[in-house]
Amino acid sequence: MGILEVKGINKRFGGLQALGDVNLSVVENTVHALIGPNGAGKSTLLNVLVGKLAPDSGSVLFDGKSVLGRKPHEINQMGISRVFQTPEIFGDLSVIENMMIPCFARRDGSYRMHAFETVGSEKGIIEDAETMLSDVNMLEKRDMHAASLSRGDKRRLEMAMCLVQQPRLLLLDEPTAGMARADTNNTIELLKHIRDSRDITMVIIEHDMNVVFSLAERITVLAQGTPLVEDTPDNIKGHPKVQEAYLGETAVD
């Protein structure tokens, strides 16, 4: 049984069947890619997993526990972190403060507020934050205003913020969307480094097949809200149904 078990998820928006009977099993410590044409329901599925959308029916089990009906922050506390299509960081704060917030969240949760300590006295938290920053090669930018970072650095920071919480499952929504070639390659390297250096399961949505085939160990193809096939990257490349639905040109070259 996988760490993430999605069974029979249905979601309708008015007359549109966004997700129809989606089943998905993600094996622990693998990278699992979700691909499919626009409107296939990839992002909807991700939103169901993190508690942003409630499905009409079905079940989602993470490590044997149901995530449905829980709020996003509760699901995060179960060990699921999410990277967004446009990096979601605390733009008004400095890079190191951005890193400290997930550290505090992991240690204290939402209800221990420390109104009478100073940020500077939290040595352990600062150390964790700095270690993670140097792990993603951003330590020299620790005091910069997060909003003034480049797009690639924002993405890097967001991933570091997720990773410092030591999640068991990392969800990535098009992590290279809108990036220049060089930034995309950096992101692939970073993700490979993450995959190989820690025990983590990743579910990645991506349009860039280069990214998908260099990272994923399993691929699920979604079309019109339903999983079409699930297989290894090599088999997906040659699968006639997939080529027909989506890959056409990419598989030819």
Binding site: K71, N76, F90, G91, F104, S110, V119
Partner: peptide, 30 residues
């Protein structure tokens, strides 16, 4: 003291991005 505390930092985080806050495991409401 509140401005300089972790609590104050969280309050600035609320202003900056509540979405990221909930996906970081923090409930902004308290």
């Amino acid at each position: 003291r509140i401005f300089r505390s972790p609590f104050g930092m969280m309050l600035r985080a609320v202003k900056s991005n509540q979405n990221r806050m909930s996906y970081t495991g923090l409930n902004p409401r308290p």
